[in-house]
Design a binder for these strands. Structure first.
Lengths: 282, 282
DNA sequence: ATGTCTTTGTGAACGCGTGCACAAAGATGG
DNA sequence: CCATCTTTGTGCACGCGTTCACAAAGACAT
């Protein structure tokens, strides 16, 4: 899940579906592990298990790349590693720049997973003049002023944004203007980019929120008869929470919002609407 | 994209589609921004733009939550903020533990986006005895030995794994055994967990690889007649890369394969396999 | 060579997610 | 009270992705 952007025909021209592309790195990792153990071949079943997917899906994915397997035997590990690497464009070296050398940026700079996959940190860039020259992960941080020059000199086409949300769009614009066509965004903002530029985003807080949603659901299900009738609009107990009567106050009583705070939070399940008060205008 | 795990009926029981759940945090963020600017209402169109999605999609998403809008007017910002927060389970406080306080773990601990969304870092855990007691982001790191006790004492149900790949599964098992039911995994490994435990993964290197794929495609398209006939198996220049002749060497002839090597390698496109050496064992 | 056994590659069905387009709801003005 | 205008909520169709299930391909033994 990335590129919150509109939508894109993506891989339309060449056959490979986006979903498959997203899994190739997974297969590659599993294959690399096998390769290191000198395992000559793997069946789709084994590899699928290692990659955490369904074997049928894996075979279909590979079928988009071509017929690289041998019936009755499986896939040649080394060969497949190469084919996937080539498909992903990992047989060449990709210089990347990381902009925003805070905690996260520094962590990324130190992350070993990049180098091992053909990605080379060409430069670290930060807006803070005090950071300039300071070495992080063995590389001297450079000032934002140099951004365009750095990108141009190194032929960088992939940029990583690890700045605060407020600076992200601005940095993004400069990166794009400088020739970057792929961006990995860690800032919690929606970036708008021109046609032809790919953006993938990684948002830690969003991931946690999604987990929280499921966590809440799990907790709720224990307390409620498992398969509750799928009531039309509302959910089991919530029923008709009165919507703000339009024109009225655009300001639900935030005061008591401490919310579920004190009390047991009824078993767990979000009270049928017992805790609406927290927000609903009284 | 997360939970590489098999697959899950997910939200089946209660109506909300997984894809919608994944977008709720996005809407919430946009709404929070509006709220801070004291904007009373928004139309689906405006909000959709702010969140970087299609307005029809947004309306449909909201329709799963109930009818919270007013025709002719739009949505009440504050009210919607509350409804989505409640739906995501953010009206309650979620204590989380971060295991593996290396560069990334420390960055996560310092990340402000958590606290602002109802997530509280309950503890930082690391296997290195030398780390124990050291304060990171204002919290003293505790040793792995305490893991079970920490989780139990604080009623933690969400765990973040930021350890090296090798330790991830082991840590995961302990977390699960201790009662954790949601895991956010930053380690580049497929975690296997029992039924009922949710895992979402964030893999930096995978994201970059996906970008590299598209980047390569873009570069290739410039050099090739845009809409190349979708030739069956291979792609434009690659044609029939000889597969390992089964029983034979499980080791594609890397040497001679330089094959197409010499010639132009069409512009930018990854040479048909001209640069095999990079990956293939010589 | 022939038969058996394993595993791939894929046709086809299904289900989810997306986007269109429009009717219904409600606000607003006269 | 009625007309008009805005914006929601959703039925419907379409396309992508997943899964099943099986025929074909090839290895291997006899």
């Amino acid at each position: 899940m990335a590129t919150g952007r509109t939508h894109r025909p993506a891989t339309r021209s060449r056959g490979i579906p986006e979903a498959t592309v997203a899994r190739l790195p997974l297969y590659l990792r599993a294959l690399t592990a096998l390769s290191e153990r000198s395992v000559p071949t793997v069946s789709s079943e084994e590899l699928a298990t290692a990659a955490g997917v369904n074997s049928a899906k894996l075979r279909k994915d590979f079928s988009y790349l071509g017929s690289y397997g041998t019936r009755g035997v499986g896939y040649d590990v080394e060969y497949l590693v190469y084919q996937i690497s080539r498909e992903l464009g990992l047989t060449q070296d990709w210089p990347v720049v990381i902009v925003g050398i805070g905690n996260l940026g520094a962590a990324l700079a130190n992350y070993g997973g990049f180098a091992s996959r053909g990605f080379r940190v060409a430069a670290l860039i930060d807006a803070d003049p005090a950071m300039a020259g300071k070495p992080v992960a063995g590389i001297a941080v450079q000032h934002t002023d140099e951004l365009e020059k750095i990108i141009d000199d190194n032929g960088v086409s992939i940029g990583v944004i690890a700045t605060p949300a407020g600076a992200a769009q601005q940095v993004c614009d400069r990166l794009v203007a400088a020739g970057i066509t792929s961006i990995l965004n860690f800032a919690p903002t929606v970036l708008s980019v021109p046609e032809g530029v790919d953006v993938r985003k990684v948002d830690l807080s969003i991931e946690l929120q999604i987990l929280a949603f499921h966590e809440q659901r799990k907790a709720g299900e224990e307390a409620t008869p498992p398969e509750r009738e799928t009531a039309g609009t509302g959910e089991p107990g919530v029923a008709t929470t009165p919507k703000p009567s339009s024109a009225a106050s655009h300001r639900p009583a935030a005061g008591g919002s401490g919310g579920t705070g004190g009390h047991s939070v009824d078993g767990n399940r979000q009270g049928p609407d017992g805790d609406v008060p927290a927000v609903m205008p009284a």
